[in-house]
């Protein structure tokens, strides 16, 4: 049975959307699946918008670029506004409700989930881990890869210089997962 999932992860530059995209891709590889990660940067070196597309499949992957994704992680309002209309019907959308009003969510057409990523990360002591909270929630909702594989991959994508941050990031991933369900 072939399994296929794709996701656009989008936010401000600096919110760490590329990092969680890479982390998800790494976890999928460690899980033995095929995966592509495609970054799209703004022209700015710093402070612009950023998004990436991750495709995970048990089959070989065709396009690494997806116009109508099956899921979306929107870390800020411009990202939701840009990508939500393109998500396929009944697609999974994780919305960072700390920065985006949930009235904007297309609740009838899509499976939308509010995750107060910044608040949850704040409670853990570091707003910067909002990205991990959002990814934890997304992984829990889609079961795209085991959450454990994501945690195990942290050491591969976080530079050794920040190795001491890994336990905190694991907690953030778990907190995100817990926030959306069992």
């Amino acid at each position: 049975m072939n399994r296929y999932q794709d996701v656009i992860i989008a936010g401000f530059g600096g919110q760490g959307v590329m990092l969680i995209g890479t982390l998800l891709a790494y976890a999928a590889m460690e899980d033995g699946q095929n995966v592509t990660y495609m970054p799209v940067y703004g022209v700015e070196m710093r402070g612009g918008t950023a998004n990436c597309t991750v495709v995970v499949s048990t089959e070989d992957i065709g396009s690494p670029i997806i116009h109508h994704p099956r899921s979306l992680i929107a870390m800020n309002r411009p990202s939701l506004e840009k990508f939500q209309p393109r998500v396929v019907d009944q697609g999974v959308v994780v919305i960072n409700s700390s920065l985006v009003e949930m009235e904007l969510a297309q609740k009838e057409r899509l499976k939308t989930f509010a995750v107060a990523a910044n608040e949850i990360a704040d409670a853990l002591g570091n707003t910067k881990m909002a990205n991990m909270v959002a990814l934890g929630a997304y992984v829990q909702l889609t079961q795209i890869v085991p959450l454990e594989a994501v945690k195990q991959s942290l050491k591969k994508v976080i530079s050794p210089h920040y190795a001491k941050m890994i336990p905190a990031n694991e907690k953030a991933l778990q907190a995100g997962a817990d926030s959306v369900g069992p």
């Binding site: 592509t36 495609m38 992957i61």
Partner: peptide, 9 residues
């Protein structure tokens, strides 16, 4: 630029 920038195992 796609092959250059995309990541894959």
């Amino acid at each position: 630029a796609i092959i250059a920038q995309m990541m894959e195992p």
